[in-house]
Design a protein around this nucleic acid. Sequence first.
DNA 1: CCTCCCACCGAACGATCGTTCGGTTGCGCG
DNA 2: CGCGCAACCGAACGATCGTTCGGTGGGAGG
Lengths: 197, 197
Amino acid sequence: MAIEDRYKGIVEAARDVVARRGYHQASIREIARAASLSLAGLYHYVGGKDELLFLVLDRALDTLLGALDTALARARTPETKLLALIQTHLDFGFRHAADLKIINRDWELLEEPRRAEIAAKRGEYLQRGLALLRELDPRGRSGDELLSATNLLLGMLNGIATRPFLRSSDDARPLAGEVGALFLYGFLEPVEAHHDA
Amino acid sequence: MAIEDRYKGIVEAARDVVARRGYHQASIREIARAASLSLAGLYHYVGGKDELLFLVLDRALDTLLGALDTALARARTPETKLLALIQTHLDFGFRHAADLKIINRDWELLEEPRRAEIAAKRGEYLQRGLALLRELDPRGRSGDELLSATNLLLGMLNGIATRPFLRSSDDARPLAGEVGALFLYGFLEPVEAHHDA
DNA sequence: CCTCCCACCGAACGATCGTTCGGTTGCGCG
DNA sequence: CGCGCAACCGAACGATCGTTCGGTGGGAGG
C-alpha cells in the first residue's frame, strides 16, 4: 500500500513540474526534488524520463475517459449526452488543469512505442465525440465532415478549459450549458427557449 | 538588399526547426545548419536564441494581422467579416502551418520584455474577433460572454488549422463556409438556404 | 544474531546546450 | 595599393542535462 502512495506522489510531482515548465524543460532533478527523493532514488522507481511522461499521460487519460463514460451512461438523449461530454471536459480542465495541459501539449514528445499507446487512448476519446455527433446529426454528414466537427468541438473546449478564465469547478455546469447551446444552435440564436433551472 | 535576404533565410530556418522540434529542443546549431551558416556565424546576425524566437513570432503575427485587416477591409456586413476572419485564419494555418504552430505553442517561452510585445500583438488579434462578435451579437451579451465566445471561435479554428486534415490552401474557402455556418447557426441547422456558388 | 535485500543516496560520466573569443578572409573605399 | 571593417568561422567554456555506478543503512526472515 505504501509503495503505491510513493508512485502516486512521483507521478503527481512529475505532472506538476512538466505542466509548469514543459516536458523538455522539466528536469528529472526538479521532479525528484518535488517528490522528496534524490535523483538516483527516483530512478529506483521509474526507468527514465520518457516513462515518467507516459505515467502522467496514462493516468490522466484514464481519469478523463472514466469520467466521460460515467457521465455518458447517466444521459439518455443525444443532446444530454453532448452536454455531459462538454461538462465533463470542462470540469476536467478546471479540476486537473495540469493534466489537460500535458495531454494537449506534451503527448507528442513521447517516444515509441509508448506514444502509440497514448495516441490510442486519445483516439478513443475522439471516437466518443464522433459517435455522439453522428447520433446528433440531422442531415447526413460524411465521416470527414463529422470528424471536422468533432475537432471543432474539442478545439472549442480546450480553448476555454486551458485558459484561466473561470476558477471554481462549479462553474463548469452553467458554462457547459452556454457552450452546448452555442455549438448546437449557433452564436446568432436569440436565446429565448430555456426551460430548466 | 542581400543582407535582408540573409535575415529572411535565418528566420525561416529558425521557424522550420522550431516548429518541427519545439523551441527548447531546437538547438541553435541545427538552426545554423538549416540557414547554411556556422554556429558562430549565426551569432553575427542575431543576439541569441530568444531573439530568434521573437523574430519568427513577430514576422508571423505581422503577416497574420496584415492578411486579416486586408480581408476585413473588403467585407461589408458583419457576417461576411466573420467569414473573412475564418477564411484568413484557416488559410494562414494551411499555408504557414509552422508559423501558426509556433504562435500557439511556443510564444509563452519568450523572455520578457519581448514576450510582452508578442502578447500585445496576439491581443490585437483577439480584439479583432471580439469586436466582430460584438457587432454580430443579436442579444446583449456581456463582455465576458463575448470574450468566451471569441476564444471558443479561435479554439475551433486552431483545432482544425493545426491538424493535417486538408492540404491545399484552396480548401480554405469552402471549409471556412462550413465553419462559419456551424458557428453562426449551430450543428443542428439543417443546411438548406445556401445562396452562393 | 546474522544475513540479505529493498529502498535509497552521493558522485560521477558523457553528451549537448547557449554563448563567447580570437582569429581569418575579402571586398569597398580612400 | 593598403587600410579597415563586415562577414564569417573553429574551438572552446561552463552549465546542465539524462543516466549509471557503487555503495549504505535498516528492517524482515531464518
